[in-house]
Design a protein around this nucleic acid. Structure first.
Length: 227
DNA sequence: GCGACAG
DNA sequence: ATCTTGTCGC
C-alpha cells in the first residue's frame, strides 16, 4: 500500500511538536468503514536493550488479517535504526518511520488499520495512530494499553463496558473493557472513523483477549528474530 | 514546585 | 519498550 510522505523524519523535538500542531487539523474524526474484509495492524519491538531514549535498532511488523475469520493472510517485517528518543507525546517520531516502511511493503489493501498507541487522545490531538492514519489515508484506530493524557472513570466489569476519556470538557477517547477481569484498553480515533465506530471495531476484533487480534499478531511478529 | 507521562 | 520465574486462577 502507499503512504504519503507528509514531511521528513529528521526533526528536533521542538520541530516535531510544531508539525503535530500543523497536521492535527487534517485528521478526520468521523466515518464508519463499510464492509470490512481486511484489517491491518502495525507494531514495533526493539532489537537491543539500551536506554529507552538512546539510538537503537527496531523491528516493525505489519499483519494483514481477514475479517471476520481473523486469520493472517500477509506479514511484513522491516528492521532499521531508531534515532529519535522516546518523549511522551512524540512517540510517532520514534516509531512511525519504520512502521511506515513496513506498511508500504504490504501488498494487500486493508479497509481498516489498527495502531498500538493513541490517536486523538493526545495532548495535541495527533498521536501515532492519527499520524499513520493520515499518511495511509485509511480509517485508523488507536488502541493503547495505558493512558497518555486525560481523565476517566473506571468502566464496568463486563466485556463491552466503557467510560469516556476526557480532557477538559472534551471527549478524546474511550476506555473499553474487552474482557471481564482484565484492565481496559484505551481506544481513540486515528483517522476517518468516529469514536463510536472505533470502539465497536476494537471490541469486535478482540473476541478473546484484552487486545484486538491484529495488534496481538503484529506484536508477536515484531518480537520474532529475523529480518 | 509537584505530579503525569502512549511505547 | 525491556529486564525476568514462578505462580495464582480459570
Amino acid at each position: 500500500m502507499h503512504l504519503e510522505r507528509l514531511h521528513e523524519w529528521n526533526l528536533t523535538p521542538v520541530e516535531a511538536i510544531a508539525l503535530q500542531k500543523e497536521l492535527a487539523p487534517r485528521v478526520v474524526r468521523d466515518g464508519d468503514p463499510g464492509d470490512v474484509r481486511l484489517v491491518a495492524a502495525a507494531d514495533l519491538a526493539f532489537v537491543d536493550r539500551r536506554w529507552p531514549r538512546q539510538p537503537t535498532r527496531g523491528r516493525a511488523a505489519v499483519v494483514l488479517m481477514r475479517y471476520p475469520e481473523l486469520d493472517v493472510i500477509e506479514e511484513q517485517v522491516v528492521e532499521g535504526d531508531v534515532n529519535f528518543p522516546y518523549v511522551p507525546g512524540l512517540l510517532s517520531f520514534r516509531e512511525a518511520p519504520l512502521l511506515a516502511q513496513a506498511l508500504e511493503r504490504l501488498e494487500g489493501a486493508p479497509d481498516l488499520l489498527l495502531i498500538d498507541g493513541h490517536g486523538y487522545a493526545h495532548p495535541r490531538r495527533f498521536g501515532i495512530a492519527s499520524h499513520l492514519g493520515l499518511m495511509a489515508d485509511l480509517p485508523t484506530i488507536g488502541c493503547a494499553k495505558s493512558r497518555l493524557c486525560g481523565d476517566n472513570a473506571e468502566p464496568g466489569p463486563r466485556r463491552g463496558a466503557k467510560a469516556e476519556l476526557r480532557l477538559g470538557d472534551e471527549v478524546i477517547g474511550a476506555v473499553l473493557r474487552t474482557r471481564e477481569g482484565v484492565k481496559p484498553i484505551y481506544v481513540s480515533v486515528g483517522h476517518k472513523i468516529g469514536l463510536e465506530a472505533a470502539v465497536r471495531w476494537a471490541l469486535r476484533l478482540a473476541p478473546r483477549f484484552r487486545l484486538p487480534e491484529p495488534i496481538r499478531e503484529a506484536d508477536a511478529l515484531s518480537k520474532k528474530r529475523r529480518a
